[in-house]
Amino acid sequence: MSVTPPVTASTLLRVDGLRTEFTTDQGPVTPVDGVGFTVAAGETLCLVGESGSGKSVSALSIMGLLAGNGRVTEGSVMFEGQDLAGLPEPELRRIRGHAIAMIFQEPMTSLNPVLTIGDQLAETMILHLGLTKAEARQRAIELLEKVGIPRAGAVVDDHPHRLSGGMRQRVMIAMALSCRPKLIIADEPTTALDVTIQAQILRLMRELSAETGTATIFITHDLGVVAEMADRVAVMYAGQVVEETDVYTLFDQPKHPYTVALLKSIPHITTPAGDRLTPISGSVPSLLHLPTGCRFRERCPHAMDRCATELPELRPLGGGVGEGEHSVRCWLYDETGTAVPA
């Protein structure tokens, strides 16, 4: 199966061979199929992909937050020596919101509309940190100040609907930070925001992660956001990681044909106008009708016979364990990770 990502002293989370299945009216689908990656303490890993790539389901699988018709069927989620994939719900609940916190795209649907901001912030701190009500309220105000909410002392008694979208997302970040987590999973946290507000939130998240040393899994469809936020990037396509490397290598020397094509298809604003964008032909395959072999082959300009019959594994380039800084799931690179001559 897939290669085991290297474990180093600083590895905080190691996801290995994760497979998540959903039962649907049209039969079972596997939106996450053999996903593996690691997150080191303090680093930001971006999971980037289009709709249906499995990036959000991967996050929900890690957190044990799958809907009733979904379950993890294979793989492990090692977090600080514990496999979260096999953990019973009560133990998982102790980790969720405490050691691992989550930020969602739409803060209004993840905040309770009938509770004040302060009560919601205090709730988790009373539960997980054993603070008293007064202590929790005081710390809630401090957290609101920390995430840049003006008049924090008054906002703490407001209800969520009184705040703008950007301010609500700041509250979500405050809530995620409240129990000093080791890992934050942020799922498209700025996608619903206007671009000037997005810039504020991205800057805030970068400052906070530098200050607190919290590791982040940042899920996005936007390669611009990846360029702003990531230390490392895992590119996902149709339920699998197809390329993983550090952010500079990804943008300078992308190897997987999907990554290469994706980068050519997006407009830049700092370069003078000119080049025509090169779109990727076709569209993302349906999970119900995945192609045989490589899942990108029907849209790939380099597809070979082998791509139709055998699914490539995610393999480190340049061969050899330890040099696995750049991994690619593509038959253009052989077992030793060197480019196959055309």
Binding site: M167, T196, A199, R203, A227, F251, I266, H268, I269
Partner: peptide, 24 residues
């Protein structure tokens, strides 16, 4: 508005730019 745009180039992430506070 131009400064706020996340340009797909990680080498530009630390460029000098103005990020305004506050909401519309």
């Amino acid at each position: 508005l131009l400064d706020a745009y996340p340009e797909p180039d990680p080498r530009l992430r630390d460029r000098e730019r103005i990020i305004v506070e506050g909401d519309v």
